[in-house]
Design a binder for these strands. Structure first.
Lengths: 213, 213
DNA sequence: GTCGGACCTCAACCGCCGGTCGAGGGTTGG
DNA sequence: CCAACCCTCGACCGGCGGTTGAGGTCCGAC
């Protein structure tokens, strides 16, 4: 889950996240042994914090106020171009660890229905995602990334963008992975993740750059 | 004149104004004997600085960038509810500190050499990046994204991946932007950025998912 | 002239914010 | 049993946004 955020925000570290927790900006759940367990809502929240900090230069105090206000059910405050609000939608309960990326990582194994529930998508959408190879089962199970992909697809769907429009994303990802694997061939260690984060970073910068022209 | 500003901003002091001058945010004229002489334009400028600081929590560096940008004849930047812009006369503006890329947004305007220095890349690499359209100048200037792209490319280069290998990234980014622009056609507001973030998120999840299989 | 007060410069200092580091220790998967 | 994580907690840190003070100059009033 750290990798995930690092792809988007270059300078996030474990210690920074711990610091943010100490400041009361996030409150991840804990496992029995004390490890932090980040739900997707927690990650949304962090994304909000980091975006506000980076793009609006808001001090943490102010960000905390905003979050607190939202928690009390108020409209997201902040005048002007603010980061997208982390909508903490009611999570379908049951299915204990469906949102857990940190401790189980990709070892997370979901059934088809669990995935649907966790991502809040219809069976139809999931079918489309699979038919375009955006979500792929391993054996009978899906992992944490599948949830993220499905959720993103659901958001796109709200703008009328269907899975088939997203196929280029898959192709692009495949090409990047191919590139990385070529380089990292011999030693298949954490260099791989490093390069992947780098690739995503480049990608993000390019998108932004093209957009603002 | 101090009294004048103090009426509006309680915590302004002489020493603060002197400090702001030292930071290059205002450049009042001087009398023969060295006393500061504030024109009304200077006061407008200070008003802008103090408002931006108080109401938008902007760091002085960013405020300075905005002022510099305006001095260069650009439209007042700053997304969102910004303080009323003071239209000042052109002031001698120092060049941005090239090492400070992190604090500059896309309003940043760098010369070719400034970009090279900020990203720590060779002229050759930059040329390659431009020939593959990974980095593109607007007019004679480059923006903050160019630094990010250049730095990422430099890291890739350490793994033997050259700009030409990165062309698919550009193509993918272009496709994504095309998709977004199609959707966002009518209302060209901050939905755009929201969608772009979503796209990058999907991309990241896909890369991870493909990688860990 | 000369005195007081307001202005100047420059360097040293300061408090807070936003983290980082590292020692000391538990947990987990292989 | 070990390596690789994760945890806490307190010390530390660099930068930002000024403040303070010593030492000196300028000006108007007496």
């Amino acid at each position: 889950m750290l990798q995930l955020l690092q792809a988007e925000f270059a300078d996030v570290t474990i210690s920074k996240i711990r610091f943010l927790e100490a400041e009361g900006l996030v409150t991840p759940a804990r496992t029995a042994s004390g490890y932090r367990k980040f739900s997707t809502a927690d990650i949304e929240r962090l994304r909000y914090v980091l975006t506000a900090q980076r793009d609006q230069y808001l001090p943490l105090k102010v960000i905390k106020d905003h979050l607190d206000a939202m928690d009390r059910g108020l409209r997201p405050p902040a005048p002007g171009g603010r980061p997208a609000a982390p909508q903490t939608l009611p999570q379908p309960a049951g299915l204990p660890d469906a949102e857990d990326f940190s401790t189980y990582g990709t070892e997370l194994k979901l059934t088809r229905d669990e995935l649907r529930e966790a991502a809040g998508i219809t069976a139809e959408l999931l079918e489309q995602l699979e038919s375009h190879n955006l979500v792929v089962a391993r054996g009978n199970h899906y992992d944490g990334d599948a949830i993220l992909i499905a959720k993103a697809a659901a958001e796109f769907a709200q703008y009328g963008i269907e899975p088939r429009h997203l196929r280029p994303f898959r192709a692009a990802a495949d090409r990047e992975v191919g590139l990385i694997e070529q380089v990292v061939q011999p030693r298949r260690d954490d260099k791989t993740l490093e390069l992947a984060a780098l690739a995503v970073r480049l990608h993000a910068a390019l998108v932004r750059s093209r957009l603002t022209r």
